[in-house]
Amino acid sequence: MTEYKLVVVGAGGVGKSALTIQLIQNHFVDEYDPTIEDSYRKQVVIDGETCLLDILDTAGQEEYSAMRDQYMRTGEGFLCVFAINNTKSFEDIHHYREQIKRVKDSEDVPMVLVGNKCDLPSRTVDTKQAQDLARSYGIPFIETSAKTRQGVDDAFYTLVREIRKHKEKMSKDGKKKKKKSKTKCVIM
């Protein structure tokens, strides 16, 4: 069974824990209790493949930012979460993405942009803004509501699919490099 290491990042209060708990335990946590770091595991079937999701729910508070490099190193894919009623959390996505790329030393890291709290009427981040940002990053965008469960499975499952595509691409690139290195030079 394939294991996928997913990391949920975003500013404090955007609903990272609520999304994760909704996926794992099928219930909505409405009281806000700032996370330092929590880890969850769940076995699911995605596109006919049974897999184990190892999900790291991270601290959004700035005082825990020193811990970010460590979990970013171990993560295979990242859910970059903002709240649709919090423009600052949307603007912060850029910083999370840049930090992930720096730590992973790669421009090509599996990510999904997630606009959470889409059940709320007080939207300050337009869907088109988020779609445009995701398009500019070359990553999928999904709106979710941890409260109603809308888009929750889709967000995590899409990230797994992005990781699969990335692994497939990397193995193809690896095979191309191996083929090239088999060419021999004969000096007579």
Rank of each mutant, 00 (worst) to 15 (best):
F82W: 06
H94Q: 12
M67G: 12
C80E: 01
I84T: 14
R97Y: 15
A83R: 04
D69A: 04
V114T: 01
D69W: 02
M67I: 08
T124P: 09
S65Y: 06
D105Y: 03
N116A: 15
F82Y: 12
E91W: 03
L120F: 11
M72R: 03
M111E: 00
R73M: 10
D108V: 05
G75K: 03
R102P: 02
R97D: 03
D126Q: 06
E76N: 07
E107R: 05
L79T: 00
T74P: 08
E98D: 06
E76V: 15
R97F: 15
R102G: 06
S65C: 08
C80T: 03
L79H: 01
S89G: 06
D105F: 04
Y71A: 11
R73Q: 12
G77S: 02
G115T: 05
L120T: 09
K104L: 13
E63G: 08
T124V: 09
E98P: 01
V112F: 03
F90L: 14
S122C: 09
R97H: 12
T124R: 09
K101C: 06
S106I: 11
T87R: 10
R102D: 04
Y64A: 14
M67S: 13
K104M: 12
M111H: 01
F90R: 04
D126S: 09
S106E: 12
G77I: 12
V81D: 00
S106Q: 11
E76G: 04
V81Y: 02
R123S: 14
S89D: 09
P110R: 02
M111L: 05
F82K: 00
R73W: 05
A83L: 02
V103N: 06
D69K: 03
Q70P: 12
R73K: 09
G75H: 06
Y64D: 14
Y64Q: 14
I84L: 15
N116K: 00
N116C: 15
R102C: 07
F78A: 01
A66Q: 09
D69Y: 03
L79M: 09
E98Y: 02
L79D: 00
S122R: 06
V103G: 04
M72F: 10
F78Y: 08
S65P: 13
Y96S: 02
E98K: 04
E76S: 07
I100L: 14
V103P: 02
E98W: 01
D105W: 03
E107P: 08
P110Y: 01
A66W: 05
R97A: 14
F82D: 01
S122Y: 10
A83Q: 14
F90N: 04
G75W: 03
Q99R: 07
Q70H: 10
C118A: 12
Y64K: 13
V125H: 09
L113V: 07
M111R: 00
C80R: 00
K88S: 13
Q99M: 14
P121G: 13
K101I: 06
V109L: 04
H95F: 04
N86E: 11
P110K: 02
Y71I: 11
M72N: 07
V125M: 12
V112H: 01
D108C: 06
Q99A: 08
G77A: 14
G75P: 06
D69Q: 06
G75M: 09
G115D: 02
I84D: 15
L120W: 08
S106L: 11
V81I: 07
M72K: 04
H95S: 12
H94R: 12
L113I: 15
R102Y: 03
A66H: 10
A66F: 07
M72H: 07
F90E: 09
I93G: 02
V125C: 10
D108N: 06
V125K: 08
D105G: 14
F78Q: 00
D105L: 06
Y96C: 11
M72C: 06
F90C: 06
G77C: 09
L120G: 14
P110L: 02
K101D: 03
R123D: 15
I84Y: 15
R123H: 12
R97V: 15
Y64P: 12
I93V: 08
N116D: 07
G75Q: 06
V109C: 06
T74C: 11
G75E: 04
R97I: 15
N116V: 15
E107A: 09
V125D: 11
I100V: 07
T124C: 11
F90G: 04
E98A: 04
A83C: 05
Q70L: 05
G75D: 03
S65D: 13
R123M: 11
D126F: 08
V81L: 10
M67A: 07
D119G: 08
K117L: 15
D105E: 12
M67W: 07
D108Y: 07
I100G: 01
F82V: 08
L113F: 12
H94G: 06
N86C: 04
R68W: 06
S122P: 10
V114L: 09
N86S: 10
M67P: 12
R73N: 12
D119W: 02
Y64E: 13
K104E: 03
E98I: 01
S106H: 06
S106A: 09
M111P: 00
Y64H: 10
K117C: 15
I100E: 00
R102W: 04
V112C: 03
R102Q: 06
G77W: 01
K117G: 14
E98V: 01
K88R: 09
P110V: 02
Y71G: 14
Y71S: 14
I100W: 06
Q99P: 00
Y96T: 05
Y64T: 13
D69F: 01
R123P: 10
C118Y: 10
N116P: 00
R73T: 10
T124S: 11
E98H: 02
R123A: 14
S122A: 10
I84V: 13
D92W: 15
E107V: 11
L79S: 00
M67V: 09
E107C: 11
E76F: 11
K104N: 10
G115R: 03
N116H: 15
S106K: 06
V81A: 05
D69H: 05
L79G: 00
V103M: 09
H95V: 03
M72A: 07
G77F: 11
